[in-house]
Design a protein around this nucleic acid. Sequence first.
DNA 1: ATATTAAAGGGGGAAATTCCCCTCGTTTAA
DNA 2: TTAAACGAGGGGAATTTCCCCCTTTAATAT
Lengths: 214, 214
Amino acid sequence: MKKIKILIVDDHQLFSEALKGLIEDKDNFEVVDQLVNGQEVQEFFNTENAVIPDLVLMDVQMPIVNGIDATAWLTENHPEIKTLALTMDNEENTILKMLRAGAKGYLLKDIHPTVLHQAIEETIEKGFYYTEQINDTLLHANKIDRNPLNHVELKPRELELLKYACQEMTYKEIAEKMFLSPKTVDGYRERLFVKLNVKSRIGLVLYAIKENII
Amino acid sequence: MKKIKILIVDDHQLFSEALKGLIEDKDNFEVVDQLVNGQEVQEFFNTENAVIPDLVLMDVQMPIVNGIDATAWLTENHPEIKTLALTMDNEENTILKMLRAGAKGYLLKDIHPTVLHQAIEETIEKGFYYTEQINDTLLHANKIDRNPLNHVELKPRELELLKYACQEMTYKEIAEKMFLSPKTVDGYRERLFVKLNVKSRIGLVLYAIKENII
DNA sequence: ATATTAAAGGGGGAAATTCCCCTCGTTTAA
DNA sequence: TTAAACGAGGGGAATTTCCCCCTTTAATAT
């Protein structure tokens, strides 16, 4: 019997190692390697003698290169390999980003091991693993997408201002840091307010938190 | 040979389950039970026929009752049981709180499994497991403690204002929500600024984030 | 039993900052 | 060559911040 070859990508070594044991409890599963961030994924697949996995269990928040970018890279360069997101972050936005990057499913770390096995098998067989949670997210996705407030593209300078705005500085101080006139900063602030649909600097900070900018 | 009995408390079932496997790879370790939050810890020990563990692996961030409170409860009611904190949060403040609550050591989830086994054995034998990380934290502890900015006690009304201040409302609107005069709100705001050592409302928000108030 | 202190609620006035319009000149890229 | 992005600015209103000040109530200490 051919085993299902799995690659684990998670920066928490202890979890990764433990997960490996859990997966290999079932005889038809085999963990081919464990990586700690997205950068290692690219390095792994660029190695000559790499054992190509059938499925990748991908964490989202990792240092250097995160799970979203790593998944996007995999989808681009190795579309035959299926990626399952495995994280404790159940933000709609994160789910959507992972699915857009090409993930075939989304699992939370607080699930039961049997669900994990089931999800892996289903992904290999059917090509995807969709839970109620994902369906809900996709249902809202259209609404989210049509709403111009989301997926706003911030220009470099605006992003810079946003980051400064989340610190205890007045706009005057920010202007100095950015080598701009206070009036210019005020203009950027104004545009940020419109783009992000906020009414005060507090709104900027809350947006930055929600989007993990700070 | 008598096995070391371990209790796992972690809200991430998958991790908890996987961790159990990892621990039981060594013959002298035995996982007696797995709980998902601090409340279950109290319930567990209030059960008649509960198998009393030698050591508890305690996560910090959990729903309902967190790891800090659960550890404090254990230290109070079952001082003979050793608690090891096991979390991915390496904030100095969190480490300090767990140690104060009575934890015998502090482990990060990105450690290698061998370190885990070693830490457990050392805790059982010597009564504690101190890493360089903990020592660093303790070195700073005096400084942190002497600094009145930390361990500030916020009065209920102040905390309420703090929470509102982290939303897109003007102080006038907050005053209405709290059924107070804007001037009273201003008084609370002023006291919060002094207590938390911040210079603007942005500072309040940043404080609230750092302390997980919002 | 009385003074002291802490907590909660309220104010006046002024300065600083933030917010909200709207205009203008570059440069740069489609 | 029309639109963006970027930088700068004026004027004014609203809000925030920062000083002072005050009363009432309840608990605590002397």
